[in-house]
Nucleic acid binder design. Structure first.
Lengths: 225, 225, 225, 225
DNA sequence: GATGAATGAGGCTTCATTCAT
DNA sequence: CATGAATGAAGCCTCATTCAT
């Protein structure tokens, strides 16, 4: 549209004010659609939610949804990735500055059960229910997310073992990491989705953490003189 | 239950030989269809499996499938219930004659990872993937199955606590039960479905059991003299 | 089955006792099935009634229904014919011994509204609702029945006109006959099926008869000296 | 109703030209589909007409039919309502400016037999044949239409009776109204659908009207000075 | 004669996706 | 960029009819 007055070094013209605004609006709209889809997927189920429903809720037309997302699956994938990213950040933060001690696991449990679960029940439904078994593409993303969460947990466990003694078995770290994820998953599902008892989550979290810590310790060759 | 002391005159003719045979054939065919559906659901996914595919694989006509099952959902529900029943029996047997000790949990882990998982990968997929978020009816059955498994585990934990000391928290038994289920679920999914490493399952099971036992002990107020 | 010992003159061996009994049972069963079908067709509608429902109600198997009737349509046709036959007999009797006077029409109206309608609501539904527009074959039978009823009425009107004076128009007799049938049809439908007021039928019949008689008279060139 | 004295500022933008055109096209297409369905229902029968046939005849896709109509039943209901509306208007117009005399009935008969029947045989088939006994919903609409037609006729009869003398029986007006409808129905069916003699309809109409007028008069307590 | 399990063509409907305006 | 009408493949399910036992 506007002519380039000076050659730009690489590939980025300084964006005009209106271009910035448009960019912002664009992202807002994208997120609006994503939120609408997320809510509906969680509430009604991925398959029972039609594209028109999503468009309606986001107050746009079906065509617009397709302008922002390749297809319905893409919507689910983006939502899934967003949730995974958020979850990793949350747990990652818990492990910061707790290297080497079991405190990181405690914080991670606390933040998951007391922050994430009660505030994002629809994300629980999305990542642990709706994204299960939908298509190869979705499953691939799901695997990647779970793998990364497990890797993060495994890294945290590694630093614990560096400090408190190595694991008795070579697979222990991975197994424990996956176990913790499984615990979080099933407990969240059980208490948030099936029983809808957000009030119970604090106690649940405490018990879960106690269980985890006992479990981890039992898998370590204790490093005592 | 109670034996008939005298033969009952009429009201219930002894089923003829041919009637018995037909009854048997009927059940065989029903199971054939169920198996076909189970395999396809696990391999291709519930939604991507059409009724015609199922009929073809079972070598019957579509109408026959509907003669034995109300609808597609019914197929999934029956499959789910069957799997749930099997799993409960398996774990239940592990807890028999191990009351009061942690031996029951060890056996349960062993039998799940070393027997159930490698021999029934499709049931893992079915109960932990395909049955998730399909419909209210399916979800209700899923909840019932999970609830029962949790109740069984909880009962086993109760008898452990009777023996070794009570739990530090009132919810502990339930939380631990759900946690163990979650561990089994995610580990089975991780190593069977995503990594397809049935050979790793023995080691995984051992680590998982060690983790569980440590976890349980840590949640008990130790009963020491 | 049994050999013919002596040549039978035309085509009928003297039926044995058991053959007679079988014949009777056969007809009873046939009628049972027909009744079951009639009830269900009237209550649930021809299309929404499956053959299995009919067999169940008649306490026989589906195969047996097909032994007695060629197909579902045949069931409807037989039922329709039976009803038509009954209706013709009923109205025919009303015209007996009333030749030449309007008394026959009065009696016909009376017997239709006060006998037939309240006692056979399901036949009203069958002939005036369920048999409409089902297939060419059914429609052909329906036409034949209606045509005959109209012909009967027309004959009755003819004898009235012989007595009281000829009709002003050549088509009058046929038109009036069809009109009377239409009146009966719609009044029966209105008061029995839609309003379910069998108690009103006497009054309805009286008004209808008065209307008919006035109508007929108005179409006659009165034969007065 | 009330004129806007001042232009309303916003809230309702004047529909753009293209919007108007689209609205028009939309209604045209809807009517095209309705016509296609009406023709096929009348010619082949409601049940023997598949949705694909309808779509083909209307030169649209199946999906488009479902975009404009909820389902097949809806198509029939809309068609039925349209026909009922048309019929009421037709007869209603006949009664205008004929209050108190029998002229209205004469005109109504004339317009029905000489205009409606020969010009819309498919609507005769639809309202008097195809819509009979199809489903509860359809039957409910059918009842409503017939009830309204009867009510209209009844009102016309009422004004006749106001003029010429009251009816001998309290139900007479309703009975006669239903009777007239039944006559129209059966005569139209008889001469248009079964005998396909549109040429006979004029004579039929005249006889029918003569019959009706005689009938009505016979039901009135004649009001003579 | 009677049974009822098996058949499979055909029906209705949904819904993700496209594209002219 | 946004719209929403149009598409049509694909899915689930029904049910009249048959036939081996």
């Amino acid at each position: 549209m506007t002519q380039q007055r000076y050659p730009v070094e690489k590939d980025q013209a300084p964006p005009s004010r209106s271009a910035l605004r448009r960019q912002r609006e664009r992202e807002q709209r994208l997120q609006t659609i994503l939120d609408a889809a997320g809510t509906l997927f969680a509430r009604e189920g991925y398959h029972r939610t039609g594209m028109e429903r999503i468009a309606d809720k986001a107050e746009v037309s079906v065509g617009t949804v397709y302008f922002y997302f390749k297809n319905k699956e893409d919507l689910l994938v983006k939502l899934l990735d967003q949730t995974g990213y958020e979850l990793r950040n949350l747990l990652g933060a818990a492990f910061k500055n707790a290297d080497g001690t079991l405190e990181g696991l405690r914080k991670a449990g606390k933040v998951f059960f007391e922050d994430f679960c009660p505030n994002h029940p629809e994300k629980i439904a999305l990542i642990f229910r709706e994204s299960a078994g939908q298509s190869e593409v979705v499953e691939a993303h799901r695997k990647k997310i779970f793998d990364k969460l497990i890797a993060d947990l495994q890294a945290a466990l590694k630093s614990v073992s560096d400090n408190l003694g190595s694991f008795r078995s070579p697979m222990a770290a991975e197994v424990i990491a996956a176990s913790i994820l499984g615990m979080f998953e099933r407990l969240a599902y059980h208490y948030m989705i099936w029983q809808d008892r957000p009030d119970a989550l604090q106690a649940v979290g405490e018990d879960a953490v106690r269980f985890i810590i006992g479990g981890v310790q039992n898998c370590l060759k204790s490093k005592r003189p």
